[in-house]
Amino acid sequence: MAVVQLEGIHKVYGSGGNRVHALRGVDLKVERGEFVAIMGSSGSGKSTLMNLLGCLDRPTAGRYLLDGADVARMNADRQADLRNQKLGFVFQNFHLLSRTSALENVEMPMLYHPRIIPRKQLRKRAERALAQVGLAERADHHPNQLSGGQQQRVAIARALVNEPQILLADEPTGNLDTRTSLEIMTLFQELNDSGLTILIVTHEPDICDFTRRILTVKDGRISADKAVSKRMVARSQLEHFIKRAEAEAVEIPEPELPA
């Protein structure tokens, strides 16, 4: 059974003369374990689609079945519970709480879990999630003491800590340099290989090549849906990148002082 199933989704913002028809009938099925890239220019409706998929917004018309349950009919609190347990979010701007340690940031989703998790286990699970993204030894660092890539990895650990069914990432590499982007994509590929369903929104074609399926959104509709024929492996790209960077590193000569 598909983990995500959209049927005739419409989304209209505003009313009267200011109506914006952001989505005009989207049908989509995502099976468990897929790695999907959603591409599209700005204004294409991909962000709206992402908000709907993330249960942050409701469709104006159509059905959205998440893991078999109809999301559109749920109240706000039920939707919040879905975001908490079934979905993990990764944002372009990381969206970590400032002046809060990485560990506490990762603990946060567990605090809102309907099942009470004992304090000790809270910490243990957060540490495990941080270890999963390779940041075990930075647990006590605050976001401003971490690089962009590290912050994004904390955000991924936060998204994973409640063991969601789907990871939703909105431009996860948008604010990162090439090398860090490759690191994040390596992590995503590893997570996907272990069975996690991942949907990412991006406008970088390079990033799409690491996924398994590419959806193109245009004018509120899915205009293209194709499988990635030649999937790239982020880890080898990363190793290649590092090697080349080392080779290209040239010694900068001492500047000559004017006489």
């Binding site: 993330g54 942050l56 706000a76 609190d77 919040a80 519970d81 975001r83 908490n84 347990q85 979010f89 969206h95 970590l96 709480l97 946060m108 989703p109 809102y112 879990h113 936060r158 409640n162």
Partner: peptide, 16 residues
């Protein structure tokens, strides 16, 4: 506001 948004995105109810 952003903190509130983050908390809601990861599952906080309005009540929380």
């Amino acid at each position: 506001t952003r903190e509130i948004g983050i908390r809601m995105a990861i599952g906080a109810h309005g009540k929380h």
